[in-house]
């Protein structure tokens, strides 16, 4: 039971531990986005709290696309993906392992980025800070689950690196909206983020279910 999931997860984590490719590239990319946004918008005082949530979410979103593109590209080499298709284990386990691995990578990036963020934007949380520990993982899960799915989908196309953001971002939009509004309302303390947390939870449940159901179709698409 879930043996294949565990094997895939340990393998992905071990590869990442040895190379640190995904986390390093994401971290640097997200840092660049944060710096670029700071230069473009000149965040000071209350205004920095208004935009900080949006910048954090968009930075995560852009950064994770670079890692998600690599997630399956590694499996293409040496026909590993073909071997996985022939393996007598459900594709859902392979998918879930990839999602969990990438979820951990993106979460690590967010944790490392958080102090930088607090310094650059002079933030102090006005609302309930513990709610951030709910919003960010839920939003990240929405991003990574859909992203891993669409990365597997776009890996078969000619310009795969280009296609992933093009099909992922429109689908991800409601989750991004909820994530940004929840984060902003926690940072500013102006309104109650409960509604947005519920929306994120619903989005996660719906799309994770559909991804798990349809992953075999994408994996075995001929």
């Amino acid at each position: 039971m879930l043996h294949a999931l565990w094997t895939h997860l340990v393998k992905d984590l071990r590869i990442e531990w040895r190379s640190r490719e995904a986390v390093n590239s994401m971290l640097f990319f997200a840092l660049l986005v944060v710096v670029l946004f700071s230069l473009a918008f000149d965040p000071r005082g209350a205004f920095s709290r208004e935009i900080a949530g949006g910048v954090l979410c968009v930075a995560t979103m852009f950064a994770s696309v670079s890692a998600l593109n690599q997630a399956w590209a590694r499996e293409i080499r040496h026909q590993v993906l073909d071997a996985q298709r022939m393996a007598p284990t459900p594709g859902a386990e392979l998918f879930l392992a990839k999602v969990l691995a990438n979820f951990l990578f993106v979460s690590v990036v967010q944790l490392l980025l958080a102090p930088v963020f607090l310094v650059f934007y002079n933030l102090h949380v006005e609302g309930q800070a513990w709610q951030l520990a709910l919003v960010l993982p839920l939003g990240t899960w929405a991003l990574v689950a859909n992203g891993t799915f669409f990365a597997a989908l776009s890996i078969r196309s000619r310009n795969r690196e280009l296609l992933l953001p093009l099909i992922l971002f429109p689908i991800f939009m409601p989750a991004l909206l909820a994530m940004v509004l929840a984060t902003t309302s926690i940072l500013t303390g102006d309104s109650d983020p409960t509604l947005w947390i519920k929306l994120l939870l619903g989005y996660d449940i719906i799309f994770t279910t559909v991804c798990l159901l349809l992953f075999d179709v994408v994996l075995n698409a001929e």
Binding site: L153, S154, R156, S157, R158, N159, L162, L163, L166, I167, P170, V217, V218, A221, E222
Partner: peptide, 17 residues
């Protein structure tokens, strides 16, 4: 984006995707 996928993805699997 659906139409772009149909344009970019080649081969028989494009219909499934």
């Amino acid at each position: 984006s659906y139409l772009l996928l149909r344009r970019f993805a080649a081969g028989p699997q494009v219909q499934t995707l």
